[in-house]
Amino acid sequence: MSVAKKDYKRVTVKSLIDMKQNNEKISMLTAYDYTMAKIVDGAGIDVILVGDSASNVMAGHETTLPITLDQMIYHASSVVRASERALIVVDLPFGSYQSDPKEALRSAIRIMKESGGHAVKMEGGREVKESIKRILNAGIPVMGHLGLTPQSIYKFGTYTVRAKEDQEAQQLKEDALMLERAGCFGIVLEKIPAKLATEVAQSVSIPVIGIGAGAGVDGQVLVLHDMIGMTHEFNPRFLRRYMNLYEDMTKAIGQYVHDVKAVDFPSDKEQY
């Protein structure tokens, strides 16, 4: 079993590559605000992803598509102010990089300058190669994202497992190698067969982080609100809930409502 082998004062892109070389698994969670990020960072997480999943978790949208670059910068800025140890990776939102490499560079520069984030993440393979190269040429670290790519949900029409067929699996392998050659420091693989994910992780020298991609990759990422059970309707096979905050918070708030109405709160000791 892999355990932490080095106490990093600040995790960097190089730290992650070292972890892979040393067979040390990489832990990654999302965060979108200062308070939660402070807890996540203090608990020793290696990477905080300021994900465009904020569109779902924080704003209640059905997909990740509506969130804007300005909103991503706002969330990322809050997380950066809370972090002392973790590497902060920020998602480039839908529409900010896909069609024009120059626009992609402008978006990435805004994230880095205005939020203080350490790297950006982009969905896609060869179709975003030129955007990746332009961003990397500006000295901005890039993490790739293959497999299920939520920003393309209307193209695929479903959130089911990707790359089960040979042709798509081969394409994914080729895209992973392309991302490494282009200079990406890591890749997220989402919801693909575990065997394929293991093959990809073994074929590249950069870290591969999985979500619904099995245990044969270099690390794992989950959405924080899912992992601690604040959300309760989302139950994919890959999700392990480490807490059930939905029930705990509902119970606590219900008790507060009762105490206020019964004039039990505040008590004499809770007044000035």
Results as ranks from 00 to 15, higher is better:
Ala252His: 06
Gln21Trp: 07
Met227Ile: 04
His225Gly: 03
Gln98Glu: 15
Leu16Gly: 01
Val260Asn: 01
Val200Leu: 05
Leu29Trp: 05
Lys173Pro: 00
Val11Met: 09
Ser205Trp: 06
Gly157Ser: 09
Gly124Met: 08
Tyr272Ser: 12
Met178Lys: 11
Gln255Ile: 12
Ile140Ser: 05
Gly157Arg: 07
Ala201Lys: 04
Thr64Arg: 08
Val217Asn: 09
Ile88His: 02
Asp18Lys: 13
Ile39Leu: 12
Met227Ala: 15
Glu270Arg: 12
Asn137Gln: 14
Met178Ala: 14
Thr12Gly: 04
Leu16Val: 01
Lys121Val: 02
Ala252Met: 11
Leu146Met: 08
Arg106Gln: 15
Arg237Tyr: 11
Gly117Tyr: 06
Glu84Ile: 02
Arg126Thr: 13
Phe234Glu: 13
Asp100Gly: 10
Ala201Thr: 06
Val221Ile: 15
Val161Thr: 13
Thr12Trp: 03
Val217Glu: 07
Ala194Asn: 12
Lys38Asn: 11
Tyr154Cys: 02
Lys9Asn: 10
Val217Ser: 07
Gln167Ile: 15
Ile206Leu: 12
Val221Ala: 02
Ala43Val: 11
Met112Cys: 02
Tyr34Asn: 09
Ala31Thr: 01
Ile48Met: 00
Leu92Gly: 04
Glu180Ile: 09
Ile135Arg: 06
Ser55Ile: 00
Ala54Asp: 01
Ile192Leu: 04
His61Pro: 00
Arg237Trp: 08
Gln271Cys: 12
Gly117Pro: 00
Arg134Val: 14
Ile48Trp: 00
Ser78Gly: 08
Tyr272Asp: 13
Val208Gln: 07
Ser77Glu: 13
Ala252Gln: 12
Val80Asp: 05
Ala163Pro: 03
Tyr8Gln: 01
Asp268Thr: 13
Leu245Thr: 10
Val90Glu: 00
Ile48Pro: 00
Asn23Met: 07
Pro141Cys: 03
Glu114Trp: 06
Thr231Val: 13
Gly44Pro: 12
Ala138Val: 06
Val89Met: 01
Asp100Lys: 11
